[in-house]
Nucleic acid binder design. Structure first.
Lengths: 148, 148
DNA sequence: GTACTTGCAAAGATTTTGCTTCCAA
DNA sequence: TTGGAAGCAAAATCTTTGCAAGTAC
């Protein structure tokens, strides 16, 4: 799959329109939920939230929309180390890249930004001449609350 | 799931025995394949290789053994950005932590080690008091061969 | 109007579970 | 000998596909 590199603060809907993507009311709704969600949603959670506004919206449309957004590089896909089943989690790609810390005991997900991480990416691009489009960093371990 | 932190160079089989795990010939075979594989195997590839030695070995045993090794922190599980389907890839956890670079065009997987990465992990452990048991870093992008 | 999108049902891909038989220690 | 492991079949989970009907532009 081809993923576009993208750095923009425009709302997802504007971003899609500017790329010539047809805006159906289903897509508008899904994109709105993803954008205003604070955490990381999986497909089913997204579907459930969408159905409170539009009970006829089909699960398949959720998957298709997520694939669309992924293809355009507008969402990042995470596994969060599959702490509970094999599903994927999605977050709007509007913030800086960050690291996800998943507590193996309590399940809490923290995010961590760091200039070291930015440097590391730079090092990879320089030393390997690898043009990074998307990075996923997930650490599993024990959070401050869950040690001992 | 609880994952044990582990740093040892002992062969996987010794490691399992010392932990009181019963060594069946199926486990011995699977562990041997994982250990001598150069790349990253998914469950089915592992099964196929195992079946050349023991055609009766069941796919379920592969999954159960992988879960066992995962639980003991002896293998790392990767998605490699799901370049082809939703399966997982496994590698023996015998080397230093490294970053996986997956080319979105040609599919090549490179590995990258860096002291910056070690520093980044240290920063996380210090600043968040998060005890890291397992880290997964996967970058998707375009390798030196595939640019332009 | 037309090409793209949705909903529905069904299939596909991957992994797990229940249960009986077997075997490592 | 005995508790844990393997094999087999079936199920569970997550995601994709085919196709007819609907809709954005």
């Amino acid at each position: 799959m081809h993923i576009e590199a993208r750095v923009s603060r425009r709302p997802l809907e504007q971003e899609l329109i500017s790329r010539g993507v047809r805006m159906t009311h289903q897509r508008r709704l899904l994109v709105e939920i993803i954008q205003s969600a604070d955490g990381h949603l999986d497909a089913i959670q997204l579907w459930e939230r969408a159905r409170t506004s539009d009970p006829t919206l089909n699960k398949v449309t959720v998957y298709r929309t997520l694939n669309l957004l992924k293809k355009h590089g507008l969402v990042d896909e995470l596994d969060l180390l599959h702490l509970e089943g094999g599903r994927h989690y999605y977050e709007a790609r509007t913030t800086r890249d960050h690291i996800h810390l998943a507590c193996l005991k309590c399940g809490r997900i923290q995010e961590f930004e760091s200039s070291l991480f930015e440097k590391l990416k730079g090092q990879i691009e320089r030393e390997r001449r690898f043009r990074i489009a998307v990075v996923r960093v997930e650490a599993g371990g024990y959070c401050d609350q869950c040690q001992e």
